[in-house]
Design a binder for these strands. Structure first.
Length: 447
DNA sequence: TCTGGGGTCCTAGGACCC
DNA sequence: TCTGGGGTCCTAGGACCC
């Protein structure tokens, strides 16, 4: 049996762990840049606040109902998420971390001789006790059915947040009550398409012919269909696969017209991509920079991107910042109010499997001037030595930043100057990083 | 005035190879 | 006049997830 453990209103629950006054209050957490609502307490949902709504559209409601509003605090949420995983792993050996608030549990990999139901109740209690975060647990034969079971566990008040969906008759009964659009893997497009065939509930899809599903929903839909019938097609992935792309992008705090400010933002995003690459042990072959005005504003819009192929795959901050900056020069047009930019690195390969250039000297920081022809090569010994120097330099930078705080050492190109600060993200309602920063540890007052 | 930020997989079609 | 059969790689677009 497979369990899906899902944290209830996760971001809101994290805020409540260290701020119990928020219990029984309407609470929402906003997206990066404080733009949209991305998490709501049950009280906030009851007020009719929809998921994803822009804050400015519900400003009056928020004020009138005294809704508590927070910027997203990923340092806190990421840390609590990792703690939940640690607690779960004490009882279940095979756990797939699926997202920041969800994990799949392989119930066959436990030492405890209890029923899935009883073990599930215990795990859920333990997570609440050790982390303070309330969860729901659905258990079934496949991931897709575990998702359905989780939904039941979350809605039902009688099952203590745990539901085992195992008997065929009950499965069919619940599928008949589930809109097909609520299934994992059915998005807006497929929901519409299926509706045109008269398929509205999950049971309607379950009752379809295999060939019909294959024809209209490809192999992806067919897997979903099998999973509904209790045949597991989506195995648990215990070790996360290396990433194929890495992206860092942000909406500017205020619209930007100034190239030097945008350049600073791009340098920051490129540095961040380089750090993420090194964290993965990967190097990138391509780097893309994109820049765009706001889709939501009337009038002429502009967006563009430019991609470099690197001479030798790299994760060196200096090199990626250099190319990103040159890419920005190629797409920047004067006179537009830009709202967003970003950097994407792709063509990722493991660092030690990188292909050196035929004529490059192997020194990944010694990028050639793009306007100049590539220099001819040097001896193999020099290649290896200079390469190791670079790797070590970046390792030291990462080590210092890990120890003394993010951004303690950075490239001059990504330093913020007073005039260009406007690109930085709005985060006006950030709670403290209670669990990851010594100066922000909560203080208990006893009297 | 103000609208997030990440990712993955699959398919079809074009270009090319022998 | 008659014109095969087997591949690979790449990209764009479409779908989905949190």
């Amino acid at each position: 049996m497979i369990g899906l453990l899902d944290s209830n209103n996760f971001y809101v629950s994290c805020e409540r762990v260290f701020n119990p006054k928020l219990e029984r209050q309407p609470v929402v957490v906003l997206s990066n840049g404080d733009g949209c609502v991305v998490a709501r307490s049950n009280e906030a949902k009851a007020l009719g606040i929809p998921m994803g709504v822009p804050v400015f559209q519900i400003k009056h409601l928020l004020r009138h109902e005294k809704v508590k509003v927070f910027s997203s605090n990923y340092a806190l949420y990421g840390d609590l998420s990792a703690r939940i995983t640690n607690v779960v792993r004490q009882d279940i050996a095979d756990v797939e971390v699926y997202s920041i608030d969800e994990q799949f549990l392989d119930f066959s990999t436990t030492r405890h001789p209890q029923s899935a139901d009883q073990l599930g109740v215990n795990i859920r209690k333990k997570v609440k006790q050790c982390t303070g975060v309330p969860t729901s647990l659905g258990i079934a034969k496949t991931k897709t059915l575990a998702k359905v079971a989780n939904h039941i566990a979350k809605k039902s008040l009688v099952h203590e947040g745990v539901y085992v969906l195992d008997r065929e008759q009950i499965i069919e009964e619940f599928l008949s009550l589930t809109p097909v659009a609520d299934l994992w893997g059915i998005g807006r497009r497929y929901a519409k398409k299926l509706s045109s065939f008269g398929i509205h509930t999950a049971l309607d899809l379950y009752d379809c012919k295999e060939a019909f599903v294959k024809k209209h929903m490809t192999i992806v839909g067919l897997r979903l269909w099998y999973e509904l019938h209790g045949v597991s097609c989506l195995p648990l992935e215990m070790v996360s696969k290396p990433k194929k792309n890495i992206c860092t992008s942000r909406t500017f705090g205020k619209a930007q017209m100034n190239l030097s400010a945008i350049k600073e933002a791009v340098a920051n995003h490129a540095s961040s991509c380089a750090e993420k690459l090194r964290g993965e042990g990967s190097v990138a072959n391509y780097i893309q920079v994109f820049l765009a005005t706001s889709r939501h504003r009337p009038g002429e819009q502009y967006s563009n991107s430019f991609t470099w192929t690197l001479p030798v795959a790299s994760s060196d901050s200096r090199e990626l910042v250099h190319y990103a900056s040159q890419a920005l020069d190629r797409i920047f047009r004067k006179g537009y109010q830009y709202s967003k930019c970003g950097v994407i690195v792709s063509g990722l390969v493991p660092r030690d499997a990188r292909q050196l250039g035929l004529f490059s000297d192997g020194n990944s920081s010694g990028y050639h001037d793009i306007s100049q022809p590539i220099r001819s090569g040097q001896s193999g010994q020099v290649q290896r030595d200079s390469l190791q120097e670079d790797v070590r330099l970046m390792e030291v930078v990462d080590m210092i930043n890990h120890r003394y705080g993010r951004g303690k050492i950075q490239l001059g190109a990504s330093m913020t100057t007073v005039e260009t600060r406007g690109w930085q993200m709005q985060q006006n309602r950030l709670s403290p990083r209670y669990t990851t920063c010594f100066s922000e540890i909560p203080i208990a007052k006893c009297s």
